[in-house]
């Protein structure tokens, strides 16, 4: 059974239109004008049990509306969904016991108390046995490396430490599905790595499906096999992360240092010259049109190479390009 099945899911909000000017405001008091906003416009996808699926899109794309429908706190306007076999908006309570959620911007831990107090509270809320709870806390303390942090009031933890505790708390009741909304927001590189490692380890160990939304392409690369990109309430791209990279990460940037001075009129066929310095140049080229080896041999013709770096553009740019493309087509 798939963890999530969504077919043609739609959500339209009716919001009151605020008119400008005194007369329009007065008229709105008597007969308010409404405006329909289509937040989600018919999306269809499936997620396998135990899969880690990236669900991304720019702000206002319909991500959180979709997640709210999947957790049952929002009725759809149309379409169907099953989460762990349940219709979320009809069986919200039953579903709540089987899913875990982390909303990066809405902490669940009690701020002035040690995290272990919240863990114990959640244990009661999810009706866990005392013995299981104690064992589970100990397991999670290990997996997330938070044993020393559990007894410290949450307000005294760094953001990274706090997020580790947050995510650990969402695993407490052994959910079969985890909805992680921006779990790495605001964290530094090391802290991000920490969280990703722990999520990956736990989801593999326990076969927990994870639906991950993130602005951080690094999260996707590290955690997800597959990615769905939505924009304007519709799915604009779905594929594996590796295909995404293969198809879109075709441009490369090269930085070179030469042993001798670079002539000011440096140029090369099929390559865009970004910068010419005294001893170095910076280039960009499309690897599909200009093979890497041709670039390298071409560079050798200009002098002895001292140093060279080849980099891919960050996945963020790639995703931005996909949004752009979808916008142009739409």
């Amino acid at each position: 059974m798939p963890a999530i099945e969504v077919r043609d899911l739609r959500k339209t909000f009716r919001t009151r239109r605020k008119a400008a000017g005194m007369r329009a405001s007065l008229r709105a008091l008597v007969r308010p004008a409404y405006q329909e906003v289509e937040a989600v416009r018919g999306i269809t996808f499936e997620m396998e049990a135990g899969e880690v699926l990236g669900f991304i899109g720019p702000n206002g794309a319909g991500k959180s509306t979709t997640i709210k429908m999947l957790t049952g706190i929002l009725y759809p306007t149309g379409g169907e969904a099953r989460v762990l076999g349940l219709v979320p908006w009809e069986e919200r309570r039953a579903l709540a016991y089987r899913i875990g959620t982390v909303f990066g911007q809405r902490p669940q831990l009690w701020y002035h108390l040690p995290a272990v107090d919240t863990f114990r509270l959640f244990g009661k809320i999810y009706e866990m046995e005392e013995r299981d709870l104690t064992r589970r806390i100990s397991e999670l303390a290990e997996a997330f490396e938070i044993r020393d942090l559990l007894e410290i009031p949450v307000r005294k933890l760094s953001l990274g430490q706090r997020m580790r505790c947050e995510v650990a708390a969402s695993f407490l009741h052994k959910p079969q599905l985890l909805l992680l909304d921006e779990p790495s927001i605001g964290l530094d590189v090391v802290a991000k790595q920490h969280i990703r490692d722990a999520i990956r380890r736990m989801s593999r160990q326990e076969g927990v499906g994870v639906l991950l939304t993130s602005h951080d392409a690094g999260d996707l690369e590290a955690l997800c096999k597959r990615v769905i990109i939505i924009n304007h309430g519709q799915i604009v791209y779905r594929d594996t992360v590796s295909n995404l990279k293969r198809r879109y990460l075709t441009t490369k940037e090269v930085g070179v240092r030469f042993a001798e001075r670079v002539p000011a009129d440096f140029r090369m066929e099929g390559v865009e010259v970004l910068k010419v310095g005294r001893y170095g140049v910076k280039l960009r080229f499309d690897a599909r049109r200009t093979p890497v080896e041709r670039v390298l041999s071409g560079l050798g013709a200009w002098g002895d190479l001292v140093d060279i770096t080849i980099t891919d553009p960050p996945l963020e740019t790639v995703i931005a390009r996909i949004y752009q493309k979808a916008a142009d087509n739409g």
Binding site: K68, G72, L95, F103
Partner: peptide, 11 residues
Amino acid sequence: GSIAYLLNKPF
């Protein structure tokens, strides 16, 4: 809107 996030807990 944070009330929504209190509704998806089993209490």
